[in-house]
Write a protein that binds this DNA or RNA. Structure first.
Lengths: 341, 341
DNA sequence: CTGTTAGCGCATTCAC
DNA sequence: GTGAATGCGCTAACAG
């Protein structure tokens, strides 16, 4: 049988209360006594039973998810995953609240972060915007002792504890290799469509894509990036115009959301053009386009995994526990029409 | 506050013991009383606190993993993941035992399955061999009330509760499309290397690969499958011979393990031949080969995920709980040299 | 058949 | 500073 607090108490020759004080680093124990208890703990190899502790404490984890109110399928999916997590709240001892903020507006994000009552929240997950004021707001929160996890888009150079999302530079490079190899030895122009260069994930994808393209596929030349604000309408217009004005385009990398608009534009061109297309995020739209052959590959991040991971990480951090690193790594999923889930 | 057994007892006007009997479907309760309790449960929306229940029971989950003693990196990795799970045993209330059996020997697997003391084991995970005697042994175990999960390779047509592994037909199709597209419009022969047609996963991969090749890449013709028994030496010899004897080979699909031998053969040929290669399972060998450009893509199943999933599923089944389906889906990972973990 | 009671491992009052 | 006692939600003897 695995040792308990009673065993510690017996070995150290103190009472349960004292053991507990030491375990939870609370004051009111003489240095010598503390030493004795800590030695006993090490000696018998005690490890705390978290489940029992949580039961006794009636512990709840009040978590906050700050999500952008973007009207695209990926963000809808992310919202849905958080709501599903809310549905599991009782069995996971979590109490999750969603704060919606306008997309791409740093001030709104800062306001949301600052609104959080420190002490009343055990952890925060946010889809970060890469702006200085957001950085400071995050740092303030962390300094106040609140665990913070970035979701989908990271915020480097801050003290956030963890990033639950894919490696976007690797994503860009992967997209470039797929596009380059799928195009064989062809020569022509490649179009890139982003949401906004304000968010780090999009910038990084573009960076990785451009770098590998330059290194390995010199016969393909990159057109200046288009910014569609992850909005289907805008994306549609931008792509349509570009295809009309440039007959040399043979490949497209859509690295943001709002692919509905892209797909519409591609379908309108129809069989006129043989294009190879790589897009991000598996949604009902990209899935259908993949099946139809309108899109050749979809790179994806599993929103459900990201949300579950963020929760695990925040909880673990809230009570100083360890994690299974491999379990928290968010993979870059590559979908062809053959391996759709 | 969420309702407890006390609330049920109060509403139903019975004692805790009776509530418990109903909750755990134990005898010794009159029909009417049972009804009354069940109604109270529904009325107040009670859900059992599993952690508290396990604490009170001192519950342990004695699980058994039956693994083949194959000498290849993938199986070594799988073993390692199970051992890591054993390291987490105390916090997960599991007691995991590994039974090693010779690879590809149905009788050994059957013996291992039959050796399991029913009642003393809360669940079994096994890398299945697709043979009739194995089927019956699994069915016997399930009939005796032991939850069974197949790992890596499935056993359809049995009553096993769950399969923790990838969709191997989809894997084969995906490999075919990658190879086909990477080869552009080239014409030539494609070689397939399997471990053994005895295991279902290899058969299915080949099936998916052949089907898609025939459908979409008629200019590539498939050579008869080679069986390397997942053994590096054998694989090396088979591949070397094939490459020497046939100059038309332009692509290779290695759908089993033992890739060390394949890679050695490829390196010996060196720059003499421009080959496009897709292999399975990310190991130190395939990873290095991917980086070197010897292999173009690696399809992988995350052994860690498979093991953790098998454990979650067995535990959930052992006490009749639900799962998060998406969390238990084992993805087909596609690795290019750019998105290696 | 049903109820009382004493834990599981830990945290937390409230005395001493 | 330290300890004894009580309870978290649930289960399992043991009585009745």
């Amino acid at each position: 049988m695995r040792p308990t607090v009673h065993d510690i108490a017996a070995v150290a020759g103190v009472s349960l209360a004292t053991v507990d004080r030491v375990l939870n680093q609370r004051p009111g124990v003489r240095g010598v006594t503390r030493q004795r208890v800590e030695e006993a703990i090490r000696e018998i190899g005690y490890v705390r039973d978290v489940a029992a502790a949580n039961l006794a404490k009636g512990r709840l984890y009040p978590l906050v998810f700050i999500l952008p109110a973007s009207d695209n399928s990926f963000m809808h999916g992310l919202h849905a995953e958080v709501r599903q997590a809310i549905g599991r709240a009782s069995s996971e001892r979590t109490d999750i609240r969603i704060i919606e903020v306008p997309a791409f507006v740093p001030a709104a994000l800062v306001a949301a972060l600052d609104s959080l009552a420190v002490g009343a929240t055990a952890g925060v997950a946010l889809v970060a915007i890469d702006a200085p004021e957001v950085r400071s707001a995050v740092d303030r929160l962390v300094a106040a002792g609140v665990p913070v996890v970035t979701l989908v888009s990271d915020l480097t150079g801050t003290s956030r504890h963890h990033y639950a999302g894919v490696d976007n530079i690797a994503a860009g490079r992967t997209a470039a290799r797929l596009l380059g190899r799928f195009l064989g030895g062809l020569e022509g122009d490649v179009l890139t469509l982003a949401g906004s260069m304000l968010v780090r994930d999009h910038r990084e994808r573009l960076e990785g894509f451009s770098a590998l393209m330059a290194e390995e596929f010199p016969r393909l030349s990159l057109l200046p990036v288009l910014e569609g604000r992850d909005d289907p309408e805008t994306a549609n217009r931008l792509i349509s115009d570009a295809l009309s004005n440039n007959g040399r385009i043979i490949g497209i990398y859509s690295l943001g959301a709002g692919n509905r608009g892209l797909i519409k534009a591609l379908k309108e061109r129809g069989a006129q053009r043989e294009l190879t297309v790589v897009a991000h995020e598996l949604t009902e739209h990209t899935r259908a386009a993949l099946k139809d052959g309108v899109i050749d590959a979809v790179l994806n991040q599993d929103a459900g995994h990201e949300v579950r991971s963020a929760i695990r990480v925040l909880k673990a951090h809230a009570d100083g526990l360890g994690l299974i690193a491999a379990q928290e790594r968010i993979r870059l999923d590559i979908f062809l029409k053959d391996n759709l889930p």
